[in-house]
Simulated assay, not measured.
Amino acid sequence: MDIGSELYRKTLLTISGNSLVEKLTLKYGGKLAAKFIASQELQPALDVIRELNRKGIMVTLDHLGEGIKALSEASGYREEYIRLVRGIAAASVNANVSLKPTQMGLALDAKACFTNIRAVVQEAAAANNFVRIDMEDTPFTQATIDMVKQLHREGLTNVGTVIQAYLHRTRADVKDLIASGVNLRLVKGAYKEPAEVAFQKKSEVIDNFKAIIRMHLDQGIYTAIASHDDTIIRWVKEYAAANRISPEKFEFQMLYGLRMNEQAKLAADGYRVRCYVPYGKMWYPYYTRRLAEKPANLMMVLQNMFR
């Protein structure tokens, strides 16, 4: 990442970690956060999915929550995800599921976390649906990968995870997970990580991102590319065309509230597009990471504030 954008990201993440800032944002910022969060409840989120589906856009539905402090909270999230999976099936919408390991208790009890996640994956398997286990910051990277591989060994292959291009370990992880048959979402990475574990220069992250995309496309593996970067999107289009890779072999993934017109245009142009749609009341950590990604996101929120 370049020095300016990295300084902005680290500064905003530091500020958002202040308890007073969090308290004030939660009290007054709900309407602003609605730019990036579909709703606080499931049913309105399903309505959003229907509208996106009508535009040819698939969805990943995420019930917000992470970093819980008691396993009883994890049980509540597990039950909400089971309700979510059933809600998707009942609504007959084109959407799969995304969840965070710490939401299910990974930081408290790894065994309990695995049991909670397995219950959601089993429910999704019964509904012929797919679960994406999000990747959080590096203290949880290996544990997340291990859980996904264990679920596959148990025959629950309707589960995948996320790989972050800014980590030094990423290419080795991709090679290992491809060999294990694990479906991956490829992203740049949005957490604050030190130079010991992550690339700090934007050019290095982009190079690694392209490398892991090629590792998929060149082997004919279905590829989920999560990026709002025009440079990456254009490069994928050109690489696929030059190598006669069908648009059916990959999908572009973007976040709800960001570049919605571009998502619709890509879908209209015949590309597979999936929108990451979050809902729920625990929106603050997700919201602050979206603002930290680039100054333009913060400016967009500030403009809405004064309208």
Rank of each mutant, 00 (worst) to 15 (best):
Y8N: 05
T11I: 08
T14L: 10
S16A: 15
G17N: 13
S19K: 14
K23Y: 06
T25M: 14
G29D: 03
K31E: 11
K31W: 02
K35G: 00
P44G: 03
A45W: 07
D47I: 02
D47E: 15
N53Q: 05
G56M: 10
G56F: 10
I57V: 15
I57D: 11
I68N: 08
I68Y: 05
A70I: 02
A70N: 13
G76K: 10
R83V: 03
I88C: 08
I88H: 09
L106I: 02
K111M: 05
C113D: 07
N116Q: 15
M135W: 09
D137F: 06
T138Q: 09
Q142N: 14
M147I: 05
Q150M: 01
T157P: 00
N158V: 02
I163C: 13
Q164I: 07
L167W: 09
T170F: 04
D173S: 06
A179T: 09
Y191N: 07
E193T: 05
E196M: 07
F199D: 01
Q200G: 11
V205L: 00
D207G: 07
N208M: 08
F209V: 04
Q219S: 14
I221V: 14
T223P: 03
A226H: 08
D229S: 13
D229Y: 14
I232F: 07
W235A: 14
V236Y: 04
Y239W: 06
A240P: 01
A242P: 03
S246T: 15
S246F: 07
P247R: 12
E248L: 12
F250I: 03
E251K: 03
Q263E: 13
K265I: 04
G270F: 11
R272F: 00
K281C: 02
W283Y: 14
Y287H: 13
R289D: 09
R289M: 10
R307P: 00
